[in-house]
Design a protein around this nucleic acid. Sequence first.
DNA 1: GCTCTAATGTGAACGCCGCATACATGGTAA
DNA 2: TTACCATGTATGCGGCGTTCACATTAGAGC
Lengths: 199, 199
Amino acid sequence: MSQAGGTYHHGDLRAACLRAARELLEEDGSAGLSLRAVARRAGVSPTAPYRHYADRDALVSAVAAQGYRELAEHLAAAHPAPTTPDELAAVAVAYVRFALERPALFRVMFAEPCDPNSEERVAATTAISEYLRGIVRGAFPGADAEALSTTVWALVHGLAFLHLDGKLDTSGPDVVADQVRASVQALFTAPAALSGAGE
Amino acid sequence: MSQAGGTYHHGDLRAACLRAARELLEEDGSAGLSLRAVARRAGVSPTAPYRHYADRDALVSAVAAQGYRELAEHLAAAHPAPTTPDELAAVAVAYVRFALERPALFRVMFAEPCDPNSEERVAATTAISEYLRGIVRGAFPGADAEALSTTVWALVHGLAFLHLDGKLDTSGPDVVADQVRASVQALFTAPAALSGAGE
DNA sequence: GCTCTAATGTGAACGCCGCATACATGGTAA
DNA sequence: TTACCATGTATGCGGCGTTCACATTAGAGC
């Protein structure tokens, strides 16, 4: 009665669409993410998904929101409560790895202005930024948490995107990780780099 | 004989397509950038652009390449050869402003992996990164220019994207500029922020 | 100046897409 | 049991990218 067999009412088409969308995204990139393809994969008629998603954007927003939640888990798994620059760097590496391992999903998450069509999506994003701010607040009590967390988010986000766009050396996971760590370290020890030796 | 009047051979359809594409991009966003719409605006048949661009991606790549060149000019205009953190911050502000003033173009520039389909496009990107590396090398001779320029590029690029995605306060140009300056300053004075007073 | 060719623009057609509208089905609550 | 309403279907519209056969004409070579 749920999703197996051949009943006429699908059971949980909403979830099935989301799953199909994720699969299509990984297989064909965001270009392949069409409502019709999703319907095909879910085994329903081309317009059935409209019963659960107002339009294509709504589906995409749902996918993005799910991506945000997974990103949050992924970061927390890297380190539950980082306090030192090293630990923060580990979270940064996790962020970039997430982007590189699910490039199409990551792009979808940050593709459009996210005008608050989807409350679900807005909630998921603010959750991420709150999480980051909390880390910074805990790690650096004296600093302006708002400003500093924005800075580190931007740095990491930029690294992720530049890697994704092939603007940086993405030859191997280790190379990328070293790169990310170096950049985060630079954020907290930059003046040394300016006057000290190159290497 | 060139582009006026009603001759049958357009004269310079290639350039006309590029111009039309730019206009459509600013008016309707990247979704409105279709080859057919470009052809319509240029006053030719729907398939005429195929004589000058292999497919839609080729046109988009051409638009992106033009965007890179304009970005380079825009940065150079902000400061020809920055050497101090303040001057570098001015260039950073210019970068983010460029993104916010031409959001659709900026997104197109960094939307896809840019697999070297378009030699023109690759050249334009490497020009930007070389330019940046040059600045860093000149401003901070002791540092590892490669790593530091990557870091600052990522920081600024991330700020641009987060602003573009509405993840940060974009209420006014001044607010944004202050934000960018603060982040760049943080890159070179971060340890102070850690131990010093919040404000 | 004339002709031939290759570059450039046209027209029709295919299959895909998003989306709207009218209709069918069937689980569920009265 | 029945009647309702959520869910899925069928059909159709216009737009898109792209291909292919065809028309036009600028310009090279004579």
